[in-house]
Design a protein around this nucleic acid. Structure first.
Lengths: 236, 236
DNA sequence: CCTTATATGTCGCTG
DNA sequence: CAGCGACGTATAAGG
């Protein structure tokens, strides 16, 4: 007797279907041929040809799929989550239907993003502003750690917020830190704490807001920093 | 002669494979069985069983897939984008391989997103605060447009920020706008610009911050607004 | 084409 | 579990 699998983990279906979602929003997909992927946890993905990795429609786990038949004899899938979200898929014609046991996935291994950038800047603080020396990385405040705390040639404290992409949120974040840091007498002895917003790319909007708040912007050349130890500084 | 399809739009492959990505980061997937979806534009999705709709790894269009063979005879896919990102998939064993023509997708119809909420509130500004009249939607400022600019019965300007879910970011956003708007003499003639933070749901933290800054919070009943023209107002 | 704001964001971490 | 920040964010809208 052959070994059987009770509920095959992944099911791939190609079918002409119509999809309706109701949850945080309502969405409707007219009848057309699409790829349906049903995973072991009951989650469903509705993919069209093209677009990026995001499905046209989907249901995230945990959820349950119920297969039924409508009054006029069409197959209907109803996917429901605990939070009353529902995905209804009406199947008009099934072109393909297969199931596959994948087993457990060992998972993804990532390497090298922003932590690396922080390490580089910690080693070369003068690339942000001349005369800067590192006091400490991840300098703690009540609302979270500042990426870099430095001191400049005049003895002023300098708080540095590092992002890969400098957007307005990052300026807000640094502003909050500066507000708290400027209440610390130990830091403000020689004058108010300066702020530097450092990123590989700084959006115009973020630059405007930073400038408006007296925060300096530093565009960091990642490759140059990585390649050359004593890189030129760029401060705007 | 039978009609042939040169490059079938969607290809579904289930295979034991190993995946390596190099781009803004590097990522590695050890050898395991996964679902591979190749779309017409050459984009590739690597799905495992479980997780959400996001693939373990992927390549976004535009990109090209090249099928090759390694020195030791294994099938190898190399997907490259214009921006020198590369996805390398080493296939050890193919369990399934099928192609399907989907045709053009009519696309998704959404309802109940923020834009719709904004339209409803623009039509019924009194649901936010009594006596409010709309001056203009998407009122421009140096750092972006305010969702609604209104005027109250006393002639005061009122800036409204609308979110589906009211979180702390939205309060920050409105605060920024108010800061800029209050520098405009044309708006502050009768007094400082008021702020209203409107959302279907407002998180406690956001409410505290808003209150602290003198910003009013309005919880919007989307269904009521959509259903009834002259809905009751709720202002906290 | 670039910039900006939204997302059924998702994901991972930390308190 | 909530809150917060990052993401190869994706995606749509507007200038």
């Amino acid at each position: 007797m052959a070994a059987t699998v009770d509920s095959p983990p992944v099911r791939l279906v190609v079918a002409r279907c119509q999809v309706d979602y109701a949850g945080r929003l309502t969405a409707h997909l007219p009848m057309a041929t699409r790829v349906l992927m049903i995973k072991a946890d009951g989650s469903v993905l509705v993919h069209s040809d093209g677009g990026s990795y995001k499905p046209l429609n989907w249901m995230s786990p945990p959820c349950t799929l119920r297969e039924g038949v409508t009054d006029d004899g069409q197959v209907e899938w109803t996917v429901t989550s605990k939070t009353e979200d529902t995905l209804r898929i009406l199947l008009e014609e099934v072109h393909h239907d297969s199931s596959h046991d994948l087993g457990v996935d060992p998972g993804l291994q990532k390497d090298g993003v922003e932590k690396h950038l922080q390490a580089l800047l910690a080693e070369h603080p003068t690339s942000l502003s001349p005369g800067l020396t590192l006091v400490r990385r991840e300098f703690p405040t009540a609302i979270g750690p500042v990426d870099l705390m430095c001191r400049d040639a005049d003895g002023l404290s300098v708080a540095v917020e590092i992002k890969r992409r400098g957007e307005i949120d990052g300026v807000e974040q640094l502003t909050r830190y500066l507000e708290l840091l400027n209440r610390e007498p130990l830091l403000t002895g020689k004058g108010p704490v300066r702020g530097i917003f450092a990123a590989q790319e700084i959006k115009p909007q973020a630059r405007v807001l930073a400038t408006d708040r007296g925060i300096a912007c530093a565009v960091v050349d990642y490759d140059a920093l990585r390649g050359i130890d004593d890189s030129e500084h760029r401060l705007f």
